[in-house]
Design a protein around this nucleic acid. Structure first.
Length: 463
RNA sequence: GGCGAGGUAGCCAAACGGCUGGGCAAGUGAUUGCAAAUCACUCUUAUGUCGGUUCGAAUCCGAUCCUCGCCUCCA
């Protein structure tokens, strides 16, 4: 029985799909004006694992996963101006980069990836509905605002009270608004800005309305899961609820899921703080799977402290796992209901507890190693289980040789050179010339190549 | 100030009323020409502090000290 923590109720709840034949999940994706950083990697990985598990439980054809792209907003316009390029060129480029990073991290493509600029009609229609229903108003400056005080449940998701928000002096004063808490649905275009025609003149949508319109269009008035980073809880998701529920008169998302932040030295990693690493920077040094593994070592709602040391540890752990798989054929698994399956299911059923899944993988690796040289059939059996269960969370999908040899890229010494040196060393060993044998091993060691003489064969891996 | 999350052995991190999770690091043994890898064992059952509830608490309650987040664009 799958239990999911719901931000709305602040507790774990049994997951009851609205329609078991169509599980629907919407996740707030990226604003594409720059490279993705590790924080983005976490959202991608976390919800990828959730998507994978929903597919496992309900069947892939019964799950619809939508992750949007925000391709028009202030930052995009500002960056495009800086670069003196069309904003579409800019966003197109970074969408490609995002897809590149996603693929590297083993993220499955969502079923739909709506872009705000392609949903202008739906956005405008929703704003219009809100105006007609009295939840929104056009201001003198051409903007359209949502009247927060009209929505009685405002603050339910984030646990905030309108009075508190008003008391806090941090809400920007804006003369065009009737109430400082009101937020913009439609922004009147300034000269030279990209804009779309609307009943209120040329302009562009506010950020929050984009997600309301796209999720409704792709998934319907109500759907099962709405996710995103913790920082979106307020105001973004709060505002989405206000917009969607006011517009449709129906309950919006059933379950709200928020993943914890990635931190650097106990501080949130973010663009505004400038303390971020891009996915690209990290994956140029570490195999992307190492980053994925690192993200899965902690629960998705916990904060995750990023450091090179942690990635080194993740690398060591993955090396152990891949070393077990090395040289063992994978065969179809005969049972899908072993104790290992059950342990993984129990862990995943408990609010996607990936950290609990990892010990199962290590137990399987241990079994593989135990039988590797004694009982090949058993070794194969456990290796296959390991592949299958790790695959459930998108791990260990590579060829062990590729992972252990540090990917296909030839940095420094080539595989042929290594093989030649190993051959020379083996000749020396046959001649019991240990000095020569050790010399060659040291030469390779200096190149970051570690030799392993197991079962009469010499294999190598990069450190 | 309002609201929220958390403090678990050397490091990371699960468990959330009873039954040593796991990884990394370290040590011993087996194995090896020596290593590496692997296996077995060890690293004395660790839970911020002070009280309380309970037969029993890391887990519940209260107090207290720290850390972090949201309240502004942010995954």
């Amino acid at each position: 029985m799958l239990q999911i923590h719901n931000t709305l109720t602040r507790q774990k709840e049994e997951f009851k799909p609205l329609d078991p034949n169509n599980i629907r999940m919407y996740v707030c994706g990226m604003t594409v004006y720059d490279m993705c950083h590790i924080g983005h990697a976490r959202v991608l990985v976390v919800f990828d694992v959730i998507y994978r598990y929903l597919c496992e439980v309900y069947g892939k054809e019964r799950v619809t996963y939508v992750r949007n792209i925000t391709d028009i907003d202030d930052k995009i316009i500002a960056r495009a101006n800086e670069n003196k390029e069309d904003f579409n060129t800019l966003t197109g480029r970074f969408i490609d980069e995002m897809h590149h990073d996603s693929e590297a991290l083993g993220i499955l493509a969502p079923n739909q990836e709506p872009r705000a600029t392609l949903y202008m009609d739906q956005i405008i229609t929703m704003v219009q509905t809100l105006v007609e229903k009295g939840f929104a108003y056009a201001a003198a400056n051409g903007d359209v605002y949502y009247a927060v005080s009209k929505f009685k449940n405002y603050g339910l998701l984030s646990g905030k009270h309108i009075e508190d928000l008003r008391a806090g002096e941090r809400v920007a004063v804006d003369d065009a608004k009737n109430d400082p808490l009101d937020f913009v649905l439609w922004k009147a275009a300034k000269p030279e800005e990209p804009s779309w025609d609307s009943p209120w003149g040329k302009g562009r949508p506010g950020w929050h309305i984009e997600c309301s319109a796209m999720s409704t269009e792709c998934l319907g008035h109500n759907f099962d899961i709405h996710g995103g980073g913790m920082d979106l809880q307020f105001p973004h998701h709060e505002n989405e609820i206000a917009q969607s529920e006011a517009a449709t008169g129906e309950k919006f998302a059933n379950i709200w899921m928020h993943n914890g932040f990635v931190r650097i030295d106990d501080e949130k990693m973010s663009k505004s703080l400038g303390n971020f690493f891009t996915i690209r920077e990290v994956t140029e040094i570490y195999d992307p799977e190492i980053l994925r593994y690192f993200i899965l070592t902690s629960h998705y709602r916990s904060p995750l402290n990023y450091s090179d040391k942690q990635l080194d540890i993740a690398k060591a752990a993955l090396t152990t796992l891949y070393t077990a798989l090395r040289g063992v054929d994978v065969v179809p698994v005969d049972s899908t209901d072993t104790e290992y399956h059950q342990r993984v299911r129990t862990a995943m059923d408990d609010d996607f507890n990936t950290a609990e899944v990892l010990p199962v993988l290590f137990d399987l690796a241990k079994e593989v190693n135990r039988y590797k040289e004694k009982d090949n059939d058993k070794a194969k059996h456990y290796a296959s289980l390991l592949r299958e269960l790790s695959g459930l969370i998108g791990l260990l999908n590579q060829d062990p040789e590729v992972f252990l040899r540090g990917g296909q890229q030839e940095q420094g010494i080539t595989a042929d050179d290594i093989d030649n040196l190993i051959e020379q060393r083996n000749q020396a060993r046959t001649a019991k010339d240990w000095a020569e044998s050790d010399r060659i091993r040291d030469v390779l060691k200096e190149q970051g190549i570690v030799l392993e003489d197991a079962g009469g064969e010499t294999t190598w891996r990069r450190e």
